[in-house]
Amino acid sequence: MSGRAPRRTGRGFVAPALIWTLAFFMVPFAVMAAMSLATLDGRSLVWGLSADNYARILTTPYLRRAIAVSLEITAIVTVISVVLAYPLAWIIAFRVPERWQRLALVLAVLPFWTSYVVRSYSWLLVLAREGVVNQALIASGLIAEPLTLANTRTATVTGFVHFFVMLLTLTIYANLVQLSPNYRRAATDLGASAFQTFRHVILPLTLPGVVTGAFLTFVLCIGDYVTPQILGGNNELTVPQVIMVQLGRRADFPLASALSVVLMGIVTLAYLGSARWLRLDRL
């Protein structure tokens, strides 16, 4: 463009942010990657180019199990969240009268703003042995003995789904309302039923938004430590939990780094798998 100012000043504007990102993100990431190739000799660190840590991850049952658990939980959470959020976003976008839509949307995502740590804790209140759900079920006579709900995978999944349903409702809603209402009108005008309109027109048109939301869910879910730590108990650990165990009790930074690189690898694979439909710029 002819109206643009010279390059030198342009670089000056971008430099602070770039230097910050380099110094506090790229360099640490590179150091962490290098650390994943180092080994521990007793308590002292030996730098090198060793694949030991990755070999340990592949051969140690409880590390392999953690990766499997993380993938399973993340897959379950992503699918359930999309399936629950889509109808909610649909109803808010197309059934709730226009003047109430914004209120309904704000209400649907308001608990998003409770503290992240506190939100998981609140599910503990609900799912605990003496908690709301068990007491309600006993009072209604459906069960005699309290169910074990907290400290299970179900509790972890419930806590995650609660969070991501709100997130996905927001992104899917944004996708639905930006479609011209004439697409729906045209479909019904040509004889499509409500379901056919959804199946043949609206779903394909919102698919990029849904995939983007699902990808975001995947990334945030697989990297989260808080929810499984508070709600999941000690029967099975996810990768972030194992990383924290390595950092804390054992101070095994090389293994923790290798696990982080594996986590990054999984996210990258998920990105490549869904890149065709992703619209990260349209979040």
Binding site: S180, N182, Y183, R185
Partner: peptide, 10 residues
């Protein structure tokens, strides 16, 4: 049937 102003082609 209707021809819409923005055409609404899928």
């Amino acid at each position: 049937t209707t021809v819409f102003q923005d055409y609404a082609l899928f």
